[in-house]
Nucleic acid binder design. Sequence first.
DNA 1: ATTTAAAACTTGTTATAACAAGTGAAGTCA
DNA 2: TGACTTCACTTGTTATAACAAGTTTTAAAT
Lengths: 249, 249
Amino acid sequence: MAKSYKQIPLHLNISEQIHQQIISGDYLPGAKLPSESKLIEQWQVSRITIRRAIANLVQQGLVATHQGKGAFVTQKRKVIYTLSNPLTFLEDDLANQGIELSLKNITFEPVTPPKEVQAILQLPLDNPTAYLQKKILLTDQEPGCVDITYILPEIGYQLESELKQNMTFPILELHNWKIERVKAIIECTNANLELSEYLDVPLGHPLLVYRHTAYTHNRPVVHGKSISRGDRFCYSVNQVETAFQQNQD
Amino acid sequence: MAKSYKQIPLHLNISEQIHQQIISGDYLPGAKLPSESKLIEQWQVSRITIRRAIANLVQQGLVATHQGKGAFVTQKRKVIYTLSNPLTFLEDDLANQGIELSLKNITFEPVTPPKEVQAILQLPLDNPTAYLQKKILLTDQEPGCVDITYILPEIGYQLESELKQNMTFPILELHNWKIERVKAIIECTNANLELSEYLDVPLGHPLLVYRHTAYTHNRPVVHGKSISRGDRFCYSVNQVETAFQQNQD
DNA sequence: ATTTAAAACTTGTTATAACAAGTGAAGTCA
DNA sequence: TGACTTCACTTGTTATAACAAGTTTTAAAT
């Protein structure tokens, strides 16, 4: 029979207690939690409740489950993106942290972008075409970031082969498209189906989004977003008082 | 009887289709989805599957549920934090966007901070005390951000009443603690129990974290984190080429 | 007419049950 | 020995059922 419940649901109670056990070191990072059947035995509740409790922990990023294997405490060492000069944005940064960076191209094709993107890139109304590139950044062989970028057609056509194998900004820099300004928005979301497959994370996993537009001679050249695993990445900012007077516009 | 399932689970199929309906405008922001019983009728599946499908949408931030009322499509208009001068960090920023800012103090007390914080604030080893402040920032009367900050004891003692009612940085500035540099990390997580109560969001809701340390004359004065609702806030950055040569250190 | 109480919605929690499917170890056959 | 199969163990999906608890509408009582 279904039992009554008061203020705090059972599944929450259980997940909070396991949470405490993880924090206190009863389960170290990488360790395997007891199997569902053992937890059912231990807590004397139904499987649905245990599963809900574990789902809570997964949602909080403390635990990751693998079908057929078990539930494991996640170990988080975050990769730091430094928000200073956009050109050194990634490669040097990651190299300094001893992280191997590789790249996998998913899509590279001319498309008609959505209205907002057409406006941002100032595409001609009679032929609003741009190259759409999707690529996955792998850090230490694991997918960590999806990059979805719209590129001006002349650039995309000219640099296709290089853009497919390298980071965008350095390649532009190499070919006389000097990036002088980047406007960016940092936000967070949860993984949808497409992203969860690209990044190998469960649906709803927290993700960091870096939406950017890069300018050369006050002309937008690329616009897109980089979506990183929130459990593995973060952004670093240095705000200096003097920057206030200098970058006023 | 339980039916077989192939690659794509039913609940995912359903949530993706509802997702499409939301995107295509069948359900506008703020609109109410059909009730669970109607969706069960519509899709000819069990309640547990419909609930799982809706849970997926909630997890992705597309839908919010209210017991006794229903499930509603969320309407997102994000508040923008500009990462330029830390002093104007919030108040001016939000005022420009026509957003009313108010503040609710939760905690203000002297504590012995954790080891990492002691080191960052360079507290004396024989008496490692600092003020711990927790406050909630409300934008347009709704809780949007939790601020958890450790403050040097002399500052906390002197400015207690003012810090309880105002933003931290402007108050410090007013009293000869000129903030010259802020080191910050931006990351994202999902809401745990404490944060979900403070911010009035479901467990696992995506959150933006701004971890910062502020310096006066190369001395750390405050260290803490601001945790904002990921569905309502984002950070804006302007990366300018010239900034590279100037802020080298 | 206003207030109160009941009823009819809604979503939230929990239990039991069965089958699907990934993983790894033990055992079988060549 | 080596490749294959089988089995036991794991988590994943779905169904049915009952009760808890907010919310709104309706009906009753004053």
